[in-house]
Simulated assay, not measured.
Amino acid sequence: MNRGQFEEPVTVLVGMGFPVGIENVMEAYALLQDWPAAGRNGAHAIALNACKAGIAGEIDPETVRATLVTFARRNDILVQDMVAPAAALGDAPRAGELAG
């Protein structure tokens, strides 16, 4: 497993509700860095700080993942179960694949 890689991706809704799989600490950090300032809250600050600590190697990727899940859940962007939607949509795109 690559350093910073999550055991399982966290699927979140971005933009106009597109599911994106966040697979590692750097992708989580990028998502949180791009989060609008007006929508930042305590869960955002905790998750962002966890990402920074994960990048520095101070905490493990699964701790970062847990803070990302909490952030996503509190902001109603967490996709709880991608099994059914994935069957209808195909695999969720990875972070960065929606650029265009």
Results as ranks from 00 to 15, higher is better:
D81I: 02
P85F: 03
D60H: 13
A72K: 10
G54Q: 10
V83K: 14
C51S: 00
A86M: 07
N75D: 08
V79C: 07
L68C: 05
G90C: 02
N49P: 00
F71R: 08
L68H: 03
T70N: 13
G90D: 05
D91Q: 05
I59E: 14
M82T: 09
K52A: 11
G90P: 02
V64I: 04
G57A: 01
A72N: 10
R65F: 11
D60L: 14
I77F: 05
Q80E: 12
D60R: 14
A88T: 03
G54A: 11
A87W: 05
V64D: 12
L78V: 00
K52H: 10
A84P: 11
L89I: 02
V69D: 10
T67N: 12
R65W: 12
A66V: 01
L48G: 08
N75C: 01
A66W: 03
L48E: 15
N49W: 01
L89S: 08
D76F: 15
D81F: 03
D91T: 00
D60M: 14
G54S: 09
Q80W: 01
L48D: 13
A87N: 04
A72E: 09
L89F: 11
Q80T: 02
V83P: 00
A92H: 03
R65M: 08
T63M: 13
G90F: 03
G57W: 11
V83R: 15
P61W: 12
I59R: 12
D81Q: 02
D76V: 09
N49L: 04
A56K: 14
N49E: 15
R74Q: 14
A86E: 13
I59D: 14
D76N: 15
Q80G: 00
V64R: 06
G90M: 02
L89N: 08
V83N: 08
A92D: 01
V69R: 15
M82H: 12
G54T: 06
F71L: 08
R74P: 00
A87K: 13
L68K: 05
R74Y: 09
